[in-house]
Amino acid sequence: MSKERIKISEDLYDIMPSDYQDLVKSATYGKEDRGWKDIGNSKELIEQHSLCAGCPESMAFRYILASLPNPEDTVMVGSTGCTSLVFPMVAVHNIHSLFGNQNAIASGLKRALSVRFPGRTKDVVVLAGDGATVDIGLDMTLQAWFRQEKFTTICFDNELYANTGGQESGLMQKGFVAKMAPVGKLFDKVRLPEIARESGCHYVVQCTVSKPSLVEKVIKNAVMIAREIGPTYLQLYTPCILEIGKNSMEGLQEMRDSEKPTERFAYKEYISEPAKQLLAEMAAKAQEKKAAAKQLAAQGA
């Protein structure tokens, strides 16, 4: 499916709200090389959101939605948390799961889609917060990886339960005192990227969302590897500026500070051998395509 299938009935076109008209006219459904650079040039797949002003999660959402390789044939599975406030405004199919169930639902969904649409590529992407991924839903998260389910799991790690006022989560850093966790965290941040690697994920990345080009790269890699090989996991730092006492304008700097080589969100990546091979093949194909386009342009000139 591509934008070709998305058409408004001519006789009712004028009554459609403008955001739907814009989606049909200038969204990037079906565009092969879509990416974060389309932001500002085309209609985004997120119309508006109800997150706090300056929330890094909203940046992450915009970059991810701009980078999905196949948004018209992608289903996103969300869970309870700040992300669930955004999904209703997203122009990509999505399901809201019970808190923590997201990876179980995605497993069934992915299998059902492959039976229902055997000839079509359908991507499933889980996007949930750290509470849903690491605490309440850890069982479902791990079991999906053990079973080698072919979908991507993205964790928006803000290191606490932000939506409910700042309770301690497994991904909170040791010693951190939150509004509703006054004693301070007594144990270390759960090392989920390492657990993901050991649980069978073929592509694991931990990073912040301060660099859109990096987010685009890891999203595309994760989705393509999940499609062809097996589970992938991305842990993206999206700090809750309210809960860590920052202002609206300080989210980006907070991420930059936290991704320095010695800090807890230093870029971390693991790629399995089959995934490395796939990425190499994809890179070779992209190179070939580029060369062919260059040749064609030269001939035209």
Partner: peptide
């Protein structure tokens, strides 16, 4: 009917 899924939908519109 708002979306032209097929000819029938467009005619209903």
């Amino acid at each position: 009917v708002l979306w032209a899924w097929n000819e029938k939908a467009a005619k209903k519109a």
